[in-house]
Design a protein around this nucleic acid. Structure first.
Lengths: 153, 153
DNA sequence: CTTGAAAAATGGAGGGT
DNA sequence: ACCCTCCATTTTTCAAG
């Protein structure tokens, strides 16, 4: 596992905020020419430091403006129930994130819904038919103050 | 606000998963030639459906493998205290997301730390010096089962 | 790392249905 | 409105030094 120097970190930071920067633009910001920057970026991709490049879609513009953190407690805690839950819940298009967590609940889901009615339908009809779920607790997002999508380097 | 057709949605979906796709590759997937695809993508960018393009960085490879959801209750609930809290907490590099939420707590933070010791330091020394905070409750992520970063179209 | 050049993609012009 | 083909420009990509 090769070490990263200052320049690599800076490149990750730049691309983590804006991946449309060209090699030329990146080069200018790290005081190099495009070629070594190209090689560094390819190395960062190849070694998995950069996982992928994506476009961020505006969820509000697509009528998915309601964000809910949904805490879930399983009925039982054996491995197979947990596995069933994860595979069931990842099928649901409203669920964009799923974490196995410590504490009172077993899982935390981030859910996007059009509105309250849609979320109600999600809880009763979709989560309601996932057998492994014991109970749920929903926390509604009133305002997203920040989401940087990446660690802050 | 112009409506989106099937093709636009498909383009958003494709770019939301992989923004390295070229106009040519996108064109092939939606059965068009590169030019109209180019125009559509520029329109989606211009109208804000696509907010930005970013590289996703592997947090584990950068020694930020511990994810914590930190619930925070403010001391008081006036607007200025809330504003102070947000501006203070967004300065902290460990905090990548911040939500104003309903329920027992006022805010939910997503925090990345190197390890438990680092998180302990974050809670005691960094959050500890934010005056507006009343109490906190940390939920530790044991496994990230899914994070799609975008709504599922 | 630099230079430099081939291959590929972008971004428009102009025209067709 | 929407699409196409063609082409100049820019960028990417990869030699060789």
């Amino acid at each position: 596992m090769p070490e990263l120097d200052e320049t690599d970190i800076k490149l990750l930071k730049l691309l983590g905020n804006d991946s449309t920067l060209t090699m030329k633009e990146l080069a200018a910001r790290v005081n190099l020419s495009p070629s070594p920057v190209f090689e560094r970026v390819k190395r960062l991709e190849g070694n998995g430091y950069i996982k992928k490049y994506i476009a961020l879609i505006d969820s509000e513009k697509l009528n998915q403006g309601l964000i809910i953190f949904c805490n879930i407690r399983l009925k039982q805690h054996d491995k197979s129930i947990g596995h069933d839950f994860v595979s069931d819940v990842l099928q649901l298009k409203e669920v964009t994130e799923c974490y196995n967590i410590s504490g009172d609940y077993d899982f935390l889901l981030k859910v996007y819904a059009r509105n309250m009615k849609h979320y109600q339908d999600f809880v009763f009809n979709k989560l309601g038919s996932v057998k492994s779920i014991g109970s749920t607790h929903s926390t509604f997002v009133m305002c997203e103050n920040k989401n940087s999508y990446n660690i802050n380097l």
